[in-house]
């Protein structure tokens, strides 16, 4: 089947189609290409949309990751603060010189030597040094 650009020489379409005498063959090509492009673009858009859905993480997954990281960060800060506070406490306690009077009052009352010393303090006496 040979195509011709001459007017009135257009062949009939196969499968018993109607005469295409009124349609220019170049326009026929353009219409075919346009439809093909539309189909192709439509399919490509559908696939791209499908891919987009697949690639976007569910919001809960993203939030979960962020929350996990946040907890981790919070833990790190908590432990760092705890260590710093402990260091301060350690330095403070280490630097404290305990007065004898306080030492006496700290001795448990159920020990044998604590009672007489406590009595002395109650009477207003200066606490003598404890024998080791």
């Amino acid at each position: 089947m040979k195509w011709s650009l001459k007017k009135g020489k257009h062949p009939r379409l196969p499968f018993g189609g109607a005469s295409r005498a009124s349609i220019h063959p170049v326009r026929d090509w353009l219409v075919g290409l346009s439809v093909a492009m539309l189909v192709f673009l439509g399919g490509a858009a559908a696939i791209a949309y499908d891919f987009r859905i697949q690639f976007v993480l569910p919001p809960e997954a993203t939030e979960s990751t962020a929350v996990t990281m946040k907890y981790s960060e919070r833990d790190v800060r908590h432990y760092a603060e705890r260590f710093e506070a402990r260091d301060v406490e350690f330095a403070k306690l280490r630097g404290v010189v305990v007065p004898r009077a306080d030492i006496v009052s700290e001795v448990p009352e159920n020990t044998e030597e604590s009672q007489p010393l406590a009595d002395q303090e109650a009477d207003g006496y200066t606490t003598p040094t404890l024998s080791p």
């Binding site: 026929d28 090509w29 075919g32 439809v35 093909a36």
Partner: peptide, 8 residues
């Protein structure tokens, strides 16, 4: 041609 394009 249209048929061929659509077929492809």
């Amino acid at each position: 041609m249209l048929l061929a394009s659509v077929t492809v």
